[in-house]
Design a protein around this nucleic acid. Sequence first.
RNA 1: GGUAGGGUACCGAAGUGGCCAACCGGGGCAGACUGUAAAUCUGCUGGCAACUGCCUUCCUUGGUUCGAAUCCAAGCCCUACCA
Length: 391
Amino acid sequence: MSFEGQIAKPPGTFEVVATDARSHARAGVLWTAHGPVETPVFMPVGTKATVKALSPRELAEVGTQILLANTYHLMVRPEVETIAKCGGLHRFMAWDGPILTDSGGFQVFSLAGIRKVTESGVRFQSHVDGKALFLGPVEAMAAQRGLGSDIAMCFDECVAWPATRETACQTVDKTLSWAAICKEQERAPGQLFFGIVQGSAFPELRERCARGLVAMDFDGYAVGGVSVGEPEPVLLQGIRDSVGWLPEEKPRYVMGLGGPGQIVESVRMGVDMFDCVMPSRLARHGTAFTAKGPYPVKNGAYREDTRPVEEGCGCYCCRTVSRAYVRHLLNVKEILGVHLLTLHNVHRYLAIMREMRAAIIAGALDAWHETWTQTWSAEGSADHRLVSVGS
RNA sequence: GGUAGGGUACCGAAGUGGCCAACCGGGGCAGACUGUAAAUCUGCUGGCAACUGCCUUCCUUGGUUCGAAUCCAAGCCCUACCA
């Protein structure tokens, strides 16, 4: 990893380089064992040690700074020990930059059908071969240590929405007690460690969880348990209810977010880090993201549209091929279509983050945000709306 | 020319007297997707109208029947074999 002339700082160092006057947004640098991460940052999701359809070279090309990988999936296949024997996760997947590993806590939630939660962790049935697996705070930390990620996450319990106050309260209790156990575990050299705030849609539970974690002193703090099916206002409020209790001098990360609009709002609330499968998954499913909003490029309306996927975009996909071609490739299920569109979507997400960071540093986030609000539509890009109305 | 089999919606293919606007697959059209059991899943696909409605369909024409994609007759076309 090139440190680009900067003098390396100890892992965990988080420097806030600029703060926005009109919101809680800030631009920072988080130092990891594999170099600095400029925030706000979006982390493409590489669950199984790969961001689906993108090579390490392409990830770097679109400006990826840090990736997310998943402990549970890598435990199942190829097994953590295998990766350790292959020189650790970075070498295994040929990615020299920082990597954050999710603890598997989210799989406790998403694989609900094949698990049983106990005091000390969760008994899973492998979703691949049905084999019995156990994942708790001890196991999750050992696994992340074996993987050698730059940032390890607490093993938490995520709860579906809506949750009763009682259920949410129990998940906060469990998340806190597991966090304490996680904290006692050994970590890889230079490995940072983040706590995760739960509490569903209850502000006082969010507060209690956040305060409890802050008292344990983590390198950074995540907001979990959002984007689990709740309406957007509830989602944003959950973030608001959590972020306010987290220290200014530590990085803040909202897990699983999200739509570009949600990310932009969260940055303004003071969130520094994001991850989401949306750009990569929606690319595979035929939706293109643009600065104006998403649009279904697989739709028949683009059959003969010779414009690039996004006009004015500098990514390889947009510099090289037309949306008609991308649509065709997706339509006939050729892997190149998925590849090109994933490249574009991830590029789009990262470009938004770079723009915001530059605007914060320039003291111009307000102006940027105003333009953003005027051009962005979560319902679809202007191009798409125009085509839809016209045909 | 003879014998046998067959002609069903964009394509393939079920159905062989009423529960049929007609199974299923492909194709087409659209939608969903937020710490990835997801290159996945869902819906629509005769016309019109649009909570359970109406109209026109199963090669064509005529017939049997209360009722036909389904039975009968003739014609047209396709396939295989025989001459």
